[in-house]
Amino acid sequence: MSFSAIPLTGSKPDQYAQLLAQARALLAGEHDRIANAANLSALVYHALPELNWVGFYFYDGTELVVGPFQGLPACVRIPLDKGVCGAAARSRQTQRVADVHAFPGHIACDAASRSELVVPLVRDDGLVGVFDLDSPLPDRFDADDQRGLEAIAAAFVESLR
């Protein structure tokens, strides 16, 4: 199968609608979480500007373990009581952090990261993991980004069996 990302155009909500359509096309007919996480990480990393890390952490029943990602090498394991990823996993609520240096317990896997958005991945009331995006810019993520990335994360969860 060949896949070619289509450049995003229009308003930010329009761009996220286009990105979601591309994500769904990538996920169609595939149910392996590693394959889908790898493709979504690459898609989002290359489609959205001003990101330095996009990827997945999967919950192993005790802590979050790094999965497929794009960016510099990452922290391998994250306890649920640490960092932005841990907060999203623990609370099961998206964490949108304008300044990671002001976030209590922030884990600096990449010192260049300044802002972060983490979407929890929940299926049938069980924690699957988190979808994590970092930016070298402060306050990179807004409400449109949050809604768009939550929709992409939901499409990922729907692809799982």
Rank of each mutant, 00 (worst) to 15 (best):
A143M: 11
Q22T: 02
V84Q: 02
E50S: 15
G129M: 12
N52L: 05
P138A: 09
D144M: 02
F156V: 09
E50D: 15
D60G: 07
Q18F: 14
R24N: 11
L127T: 05
S2T: 11
G67Y: 03
L40T: 05
Y59M: 08
C75F: 06
Q70N: 02
D125M: 10
Y45H: 07
A108T: 07
D145E: 11
Q93V: 06
E50P: 14
H31A: 12
S135L: 09
H46D: 15
D125C: 13
Q93E: 11
A88Q: 03
E158V: 09
A17Q: 08
Y45N: 15
G86Y: 00
R123I: 13
D99T: 01
A37G: 11
S11T: 12
S159D: 00
A154P: 08
R123H: 06
R114K: 11
F58G: 01
A25E: 11
G71Y: 02
R114N: 12
L26I: 05
R96G: 02
A151V: 05
L20S: 15
R114C: 08
A38P: 12
P68A: 04
F103A: 10
S91P: 11
F103Q: 01
E158T: 14
E63N: 10
Y57I: 06
F103L: 13
S91L: 07
P138C: 06
T9N: 15
C109R: 00
S11V: 12
V54F: 01
S2A: 15
C75Y: 06
F58H: 05
L8S: 04
G61K: 03
V119M: 03
Y57W: 06
I152G: 00
R90W: 08
L19R: 01
L40D: 12
A151E: 10
H31P: 14
C75G: 05
A23H: 02
F69E: 02
Q22I: 00
S115L: 01
V65H: 04
A154F: 13
